[in-house]
């Protein structure tokens, strides 16, 4: 269902995600990172109830765990030595830094999950089309072939099975060979057809004049309002970060988490920025419930 945040114009949601991904890469402050993680999780929940995330979360957690463990194993920077591992000091700061890196990595992966939910292939191509029409066209054509080729692969495989070429428990070499046989059949069949498609496209006038295109969606008032808020908050966040607000140093000794007045403003902006999509979705949901309750 498309509503709330996912209903924004693709360009606007792309701008939001670009800024959010940049923040995942730039910010290393524990409070901001915790907020990012929580917001990315909430965003996934509010978009599809976390269904997409549930599939990949175990793998993501494993990657994050590896990143967290790797840092103290390879880095002995920091002053607070906790214990020695095979004559190498393991420091509190290195562990904390590893944890922060892992949190940043995890939030990046979570944000990408939400990105894929909001900007599906169709919307991404609509984004690409005005910038790079020929590339977008090639990708669209290529995408159209994928389901077709997948179906053909199934057909070729069933023929091979019927001929007894794919016995149970064949060795690895045989498996690779037969897989390649499948691909040969697929290539010879599909290449020929692609070129015939091209001939038919030319017969219908492809390449005669400039290609025309139409985009049905326009930036409406809500999109512009969102963009302005985004610009305002984004400038605050980026300029604040560039001038050193919330620049957290784990080395040589963990920095205490103190907030300056300027830091509070920065934090407020960032939290509002993170909350925008969740608020929008929440408002829509509430609206829907209230209308229904009146019926």
């Amino acid at each position: 269902m498309v509503f709330g945040f996912a209903g924004l114009h693709p360009r606007v949601s792309f701008a939001y995600f670009a800024l959010l991904l940049l923040c995942c890469m730039l910010l290393r402050h524990p409070v901001l990172l915790a907020a990012t993680l929580a917001a990315a999780l909430l965003l996934n929940l509010s978009l599809d109830g976390g269904r997409r995330l549930r599939r990949s979360l175990p793998a993501y957690l494993l990657i994050a765990l590896l990143a967290a463990v790797a840092n103290p194993l390879f880095s002995s920077r920091g002053e607070t030595i906790l214990f020695y591992l095979r004559d190498r000091p393991v420091t509190l700061e290195a562990i904390a830094y590893g944890g922060l890196s892992a949190a940043a990595l995890l939030s990046l992966l979570l944000v990408f999950t939400a990105f894929n939910l909001v900007l599906d292939s169709g919307r991404l191509l609509r984004l690409l089309a005005p910038v790079a029409p020929q590339t977008a066209f090639a990708v669209t054509v290529s995408m159209r072939f994928v389901p077709l080729l997948t179906r053909r692969l199934g057909e070729i495989r069933s023929v091979q099975r019927a001929l007894g070429d794919l016995p149970e428990g064949m060795g690895r070499r045989r498996y690779l060979r037969e897989g390649m046989e499948t691909l040969h059949a697929l290539v010879a069949w599909s290449l020929e057809e692609a070129l015939q498609t091209a001939l038919s496209m030319r017969a219908r006038g492809y390449g005669i004049g400039p290609r025309s295109s139409a985009d049905v969606s326009r930036l409406d008032g809500r999109d512009w309002a969102f963009l302005w808020v985004l610009l305002l908050l984004g400038c605050n966040i980026i300029i604040g970060r560039a001038s050193g607000v919330h620049a957290y140093e784990a080395y040589p000794r963990l920095e205490p988490l103190q907030e300056t007045p300027l830091g509070w403003v920065h934090l407020g902006c960032y939290l509002l920025f993170l909350a925008l999509p969740v608020l929008m979705n929440g408002k829509e949901r509430l609206h829907w419930r209230l209308i229904r309750s009146k019926m």
């Binding site: 090639a138 990708v139 054509v141 290529s142 072939f145 080729l149 691909l183 692609a194 091209a198």
Partner: peptide, 9 residues
């Protein structure tokens, strides 16, 4: 079409 088809393959 050739580039698109080879990419899809």
């Amino acid at each position: 079409l050739l580039v698109a088809m080879l990419g899809a393959i």
